[in-house]
């Protein structure tokens, strides 16, 4: 990957990538691996970007797809190596990534959601319109609206009393 491409086409959107990768990893090491993998895949797939959507939307979609693939692979490996693995992927209390405590708690709560719900809420929090979220996730915009409300209710329940 050339430094030029990274600086001009990936770095301005690194915030998006970081937010997504953080939501799908529970350690700094995994986070860095996921971030690297996303950057690599963006670079490798750059010629497939046809301009049908915004570059940022394309990066969102790619980052989510890569994280979902990686998390699926990781779960499969864990099941393969440990037959009695039952613990869902979630953040450990001592492994907080941000200096803002409320943000850490919100991320912990997001990590308790299903893989797809995590993607939906991340896009919602990034103020993406339902239409765009639906396009990225591959579902109908109506479905997204209902889903967001349900996810928000669930997050509120998880966070209830934890944040003042």
């Amino acid at each position: 990957m050339s430094t030029d491409f990274y600086t001009s086409s990936i770095l301005p959107y690194s915030g998006i990538i970081i937010k997504i990768c953080r939501a799908y990893t529970d350690s700094q090491e995994d986070f860095e691996d996921y971030y690297q993998e996303v950057c690599l895949q963006i670079w490798r797939s750059r010629e497939r970007f046809r301009g049908d959507s915004k570059w940022s939307t394309w990066i969102y979609r790619l980052s989510l797809n890569i994280c979902l693939t990686l998390i699926k692979k990781k779960k499969k490996n864990k099941q393969h190596y440990s037959s009695n693995y039952e613990r869902p992927l979630e953040a450990t209390e001592d492994n907080h990534a941000f200096s803002d405590e409320s943000l850490n708690l919100l991320y912990d709560a997001i990590k308790k959601l299903s893989d797809i719900d995590r993607a939906v809420i991340l896009l919602y929090l990034e103020e993406k319109p339902n239409m765009e979220i639906a396009e990225i996730i591959g579902t109908s915009p109506n479905n997204i609206g209902v889903r967001i409300n349900r996810i928000k209710e669930r997050l509120k329940k998880i966070l209830d009393g934890k944040i003042n």
């Binding site: 941000f98 803002d100 409320s102 943000l103 708690l105 919100l106 929090l125 928000k152 997050l155 509120k156 966070l159 209830d160 009393g161 934890k162 944040i163 003042n164």
Partner: peptide, 12 residues
């Protein structure tokens, strides 16, 4: 919970 998830995200 005092803050909405949207404001935690934004402020954070």
């Amino acid at each position: 919970m005092g803050k909405s998830i949207e404001s935690i995200w934004k402020d954070g």
